[in-house]
């Protein structure tokens, strides 16, 4: 074990440079937020992920955000275990009817001010599951959505850009 830890000190970190914020996402976010709330959060966001019917593809890539290459915590973004601790709900899936109530209750359990980020094509419009008897469809049909990150699934870089827009959108507005 000591050898592996020692090697980690000798070799440089794998963590890569920030991909920068997504311009469209910044715009969408900026329009959706209140200045006061941004001031309160500073540049840190606590994120609660909610799978509302995804195939698990989006979760795999959200997981990847925490690996050594992307290291999402350096941007002040961290995943929390309870909606009570969260500023942001990261919601995936075409919201199945069997998960609708759980999503609504999770949203209600999240203290204000809060944001919802819909991750993946399914969360945006139901994706390939749109029209099924078992799905509601877009996350925005169930809870208000502040930002969409599309993809099937969106890769870690796309996720990072979107989430950075959440943090930096506030900063940009602050400067203005």
């Amino acid at each position: 074990m000591r050898k592996i830890i020692l090697e980690s000190f000798i070799h440089g970190p794998l963590t890569e440079r920030s991909p920068g914020a997504d311009a469209d996402a910044v715009a969408e976010y900026a329009a959706a937020l209140e200045r006061a709330a941004r001031r309160r959060f500073g540049r840190s966001l606590a994120i609660r992920q909610v799978d509302a019917g995804s195939c698990n593809g989006c979760e795999l890539e959200i997981h990847a955000l925490s690996n050594a290459f992307y290291d999402v915590e350096r941007f002040g973004l961290r995943f929390v275990a309870s909606p009570r601790h969260a500023d942001v709900l990261l919601v995936t899936g075409p919201v199945t009817r069997n998960m609708r109530e759980a999503l609504e209750r999770t949203w209600r359990a999240t203290p204000d001010p809060k944001w919802v980020v819909a991750v993946g094509d399914c969360a945006a419009d139901g994706g390939m599951f749109a029209g099924s008897y078992a799905c509601v469809g877009a996350v925005s049909a169930v809870v208000p959505v502040d930002l969409h990150i599309r993809g099937c699934p969106p890769g870690p870089t796309a996720l990072l850009r979107g989430l950075l827009a959440l943090v930096q959108g506030g900063a940009t507005d602050h400067a203005a």
């Binding site: 799978d51 019917g53 995804s54 899936g93 075409p94 199945t96 069997n98 998960m99 759980a102 390939m128 599951f129 029209g131 099924s132 008897y133 078992a134 799905c135």
Partner: peptide
Amino acid sequence: LGYVHKGVESL
């Protein structure tokens, strides 16, 4: 289980 039933076989 069944929470993420999406109706795949009907689609």
